[in-house]
Simulated assay, not measured.
Amino acid sequence: MVSCGCSKENVELSSAKIIGGEEAIPFSWSMIVSIRLNNFDEHSCAGTILTESYILTSAHCVAGTLVWDVSIAAGMHNRITDFSMIRYVTEIYIHPNWSGNDGTYRNDIAILRISPPLSMPGILGLTRICVPYINSMTETVNYPPTGSHLVIVGWGSTQYDYNSTSDTLQQTSIYMIDNNDPICQESIHDEEKQFCAGMSGYNPCQGDSGGPVFQWKGTYWEQVRSLIFQSCR
């Protein structure tokens, strides 16, 4: 029995996009969390559940913040009205080789330790992410292969407006694009550690950073990447 990558409700996908909107089935992505900074009611970035005590997100979402200014909310669909499990961050671990805010987004990874641990699955049906088992850097660069069908999830903007985010969890299908494709050249700064994916007109946006890129493995969803760069175009 798979103990990760599955939620209490099944995922249903159409061809819609996050910009323009497709609302996810409530509680079909039980491994995603909202990360809040300063004002604990305001969504800033997304993250995913690694374990009961650790959350995966992007470094640029939490760099320069103090632990007592960061919290996470788990187990919700509508981030305004739904009950959620709130946890406070006690440690922030940023990749030691993160490039900082230089615009390249190299090693843009962070892990948050939270307390107390999440109750899993609990009444909210929380689950952790599945991650791929990869033997070498060569496999990492080529995984998932170009053309792979992927899904991104988040509470990011549903309009071309950086000041708005979605109240309800959104989702869209995208496809892995070769990093050497001309449309990727402005975004890719390290082909070994970054990836290019999307579809014409289909893009993540503000508020989606740190969130998951999933691939269906036949019986469960595997998180293959995290969103570190958004264009809204």
Rank of each mutant, 00 (worst) to 15 (best):
140 T>C: 14
141 V>E: 15
142 N>P: 06
143 Y>M: 05
143 Y>V: 14
143 Y>D: 09
144 P>G: 13
144 P>F: 10
145 P>C: 02
145 P>G: 10
147 G>Q: 06
147 G>M: 12
148 S>H: 05
149 H>S: 11
149 H>Q: 13
152 I>W: 08
153 V>P: 06
154 G>I: 02
154 G>N: 09
156 G>V: 05
157 S>D: 14
157 S>Q: 13
157 S>I: 01
159 Q>M: 07
159 Q>K: 11
160 Y>V: 02
160 Y>H: 12
160 Y>N: 11
160 Y>R: 06
161 D>L: 09
161 D>V: 04
162 Y>A: 08
162 Y>I: 01
163 N>P: 00
164 S>D: 07
164 S>P: 01
165 T>I: 14
166 S>K: 08
168 T>C: 03
168 T>P: 01
171 Q>M: 15
172 T>D: 05
173 S>W: 04
173 S>D: 01
173 S>Q: 12
176 M>L: 12
177 I>N: 09
178 D>S: 14
178 D>P: 07
178 D>Q: 05
179 N>G: 15
180 N>L: 02
181 D>I: 00
181 D>Q: 07
181 D>Y: 08
181 D>G: 02
183 I>F: 09
184 C>Q: 09
184 C>R: 06
184 C>S: 12
184 C>K: 03
186 E>P: 10
187 S>W: 10
187 S>P: 02
189 H>C: 00
189 H>R: 14
192 E>F: 13
194 Q>D: 12
194 Q>Y: 04
196 C>G: 08
196 C>L: 07
196 C>M: 06
196 C>D: 09
197 A>I: 07
197 A>P: 09
198 G>R: 06
198 G>P: 13
199 M>H: 11
200 S>N: 03
201 G>I: 00
201 G>S: 12
201 G>P: 04
202 Y>G: 15
203 N>K: 04
203 N>E: 10
205 C>V: 03
206 Q>P: 00
208 D>G: 05
208 D>Y: 00
208 D>M: 01
209 S>M: 09
209 S>L: 03
211 G>F: 12
211 G>R: 07
211 G>H: 14
214 F>Y: 00
214 F>I: 01
215 Q>W: 07
216 W>G: 02
